[in-house]
Write a protein that binds this DNA or RNA. Structure first.
Lengths: 418, 418
DNA sequence: CTGGATTCGTTTAATCTGAGAACCAATCGT
DNA sequence: ACGATTGGTTCTCAGATTAAACGAATCCAG
């Protein structure tokens, strides 16, 4: 904790793919890199000892020892129990220190605001879900600010050092700039949401960033994980629209954004050339087959009604079954196309539609499983996980992005500490 | 050039996404990183001065000076002309030194072998195209070895230090292992092609690697470029089958491979659920609509005939026009789906089918242009370039991968030099 | 033409980081 | 209880970068 005082809430729009033309650096940079490596190793494999780290990071015991000591002093790590020994001095387990810092994550969705405060290891300290009908960005920002202030004041959060805030938004983000280009379901366009939020949250320190909701979710699902970490992961968010986010790279997870922030807009990949008109103006988009609004359209459910709540009691109606089956089949095609285009190590399926369960999901998973191995002829299955309750997934993912931007990025929060 | 003698041809299967759990290192590592950065900057912007490099890489003049000196001595860089000054001592331009090294690239295609030898900046010194009907991996390897030996002995190549060989193959590569999992059009499966090649090329030093043809091509198109370098690039290879490769990341270009090496197999994304049967067993794959074999099937052209040569004189036949128009429309959908799923900064279209020209391409480009801005409503066009003669693109790309693996990777070729 | 200003590149001493080896600490097996 | 083994720390040393001063090469103004 540097004595010079508080860190300014220096906004950092999003985890850019690259900070500099090419990475180069001085001794300080090297030191920081090694501290990051230590922190990252412990983050992935809680309970590592200094000796383990030295082996895995290819550093000497001396270097690791010094690095761990500073990370302990800074409150990033804590020492745990002694490990079992097998004929030697037992090592001391190291863990992330979940007691000193707090990460804030929020999601602005079509149906409301979701907020979480969590620890370094992704443990949620407090969360809040506020229903809200779509309104202006300004009103939304003011409300979100108020709710976040409440969260900051809550018992489990107060007193912790804030590392920053991540905001997940339902639309593509401009690359390199903290601008939400479009949120069709909110009726927003070109919104600098963080700028709107800042006046209401002058006390929230640390790194601020915003990202697309599916991308944040994907990031969180990969990042807040320990043990065997997949090389890449795609999160498919099936709600009012359908989008996806991909994270790649085991040692510095990167989110694929694309030139215009459109990467992952799989809802507008065409599955049926010449098919139904989509709200985007094209025909045959995936969203015309599988999405909240296509299901509403097929079943004549008004926007005011909650789609899931309306459908759950009616799952046995034949029209509902047929509609969901068709949507599920399209979802299966979407998943398969994702598999052949990106081939992620893991697919996570979330969004409000997953609550509809079997009638929608069974056809999708069946199609995917039946066809995913056609090409190679193997029997290897891509892990595909369905999250029934994905309420806080994106918000938590945005918090994960804050942490990653501090550990891996150019933030001062770590740098200044060492 | 280290005095201790020749470098062993230590095979390195492919540019892995990550070499280590997390990057850490010592002073040597830092030095190497900075040398890489210098080399990379000059590679991108030929003619930079030491002062420019210091500014861009955030290094001091002293460090850059020392680094440049060693790179000059090693033959990686050369000094050029004095730059124009504006009221001060003029800087000396730096360029890649194209005179000392050579990179070998090869492509094993359905219709033959393509070989190139090129310089650090991607300039082709010699190339060779050998027609060959598909045969066994062993025979192919032997022939390729012989041809490469001829290339090595050629006037412009002899005497240069070999940095290695990259081989592009028409199928998915296993991740982390130098194994061609499948090449349907060659009838190959699980081939360790480099192992077959090695006995015939004991004299070819440096890094050996292999990769998928479209991925190599994508890499080369991004890497052997100067000036404004796109953040990401997708190469679509339209030939007998249809595949793609994506490269991302401006400061260390990475190829998306996927868990099973399937990333980019867009020929098997489904564009028409319930459509025609594909050779993979599924229905409605893109390849059933746009690919060499789907066009052959539609027009009844035997495998023995050269597709492009057969069609070129018949482009005005109505059945040919209709077939190519349909294929082109499907290609347009494929490009649009790529745009919405990955949103690359640039798309390059190559492969033998591009030689068919307008009748195929016009519908594809028209569809793509008409729909690429539906979502955002902007008028920004994704740069889309068609390569008419893509004969050596993949081979040259494989050579580029060799260079990149040496500059950015853990190779000794740079490390030992400093 | 000369001198000052400016920019480029190199040289010097100083600083800082990780490596390496010796050292102490703690446990296990016998 | 003792050696063997493994974990972690403390030294010194090699090395890479830095900062600051210096020399080099050009422009420009008078």
């Amino acid at each position: 904790m540097p004595a010079q005082g508080t860190h300014s809430a220096r906004p950092c729009h999003s985890m850019s793919t690259s900070f500099q033309p090419h990475k180069a650096g001085d001794l300080h940079f090297l030191k920081r890199l090694n501290r990051s490596a230590i922190l990252e190793l412990v983050r992935r494999t809680p309970g590592l000892t200094r000796a383990d780290i030295a082996t895995q990071a290819q550093l000497t015991k001396a270097t690791v020892g010094a690095g761990v000591q500073s990370l302990l002093q800074q409150g990033w790590l804590r020492e745990g129990e002694l490990q079992k020994s097998s004929g030697g001095r037992p090592g001391r387990a190291l863990h992330l220190n979940d007691d000193n810092h707090v990460l804030f994550g929020a999601e602005v969705g079509v149906h409301g605001l979701r907020l979480v405060a969590c620890t370094l290891s992704g443990q949620v300290l407090v969360s809040h879900h506020e229903h809200l009908v779509p309104t202006t960005p300004e009103v939304t920002a003011e409300l979100l600010g108020e709710l976040l202030r409440t969260l900051m004041a809550s018992r489990h959060v107060a007193g912790r050092q804030s590392l920053g805030l991540g905001v997940a938004l339902p639309g593509p983000i401009a690359p390199g700039k903290p601008v939400l280009r479009l949120a069709p379901n909110l009726g927003w366009r070109d919104i600098r949401f963080l700028d709107l939020l800042r006046p209401h949250l002058t006390l929230l320190e640390g790194t601020w960033l915003m990202d697309n909701e599916a991308k944040s979710a994907a990031f969180g699902e990969l990042y807040f994980r320990t043990g065997q970490i997949p090389e890449s992961l795609v999160y498919v968010s099936a709600g009012t629209g359908i989008g996806s986010g991909m994270v790649e790279g085991s040692h510095l997870p990167l989110v694929t954004r694309g030139m215009q922030g459109l990467a992952g807009e799989i809802g507008h990949t065409v599955l049926q050339p010449g098919g139904l008109y989509c709200h985007c103006g094209n025909r045959g988009c995936a969203e015309t087959l599988v999405s909240g609004w296509s299901i509403r359209a097929a079943l004549g459910i008004a926007e005011e009604e909650d789609l899931v709540a309306t459908l759950l009691p009616r799952l046995n109606d034949s029209d509902v079954q047929v509609t969901l089956r068709r949507a599920g089949e399209a979802l299966g095609v979407l998943l398969l196309n994702l598999h052949h285009a990106q081939n992620p190590s893991e697919i996570v399926l979330g969004g409000s539609l997953t609550q509809l369960g079997e009638p929608l999901l069974e056809p999708a998973l069946a199609y995917f499983k039946a066809n995913q191995n056609r090409l190679l002829g193997t029997s290897q299955q891509v892990p595909l996980r369905v999250i029934e309750d994905s309420t806080f997934v994106a918000a938590r993912g945005a918090a994960a992005q804050v942490l990653a931007s501090i550990i891996h990025g150019p933030s001062d929060l770590l740098q200044a500490s060492f």
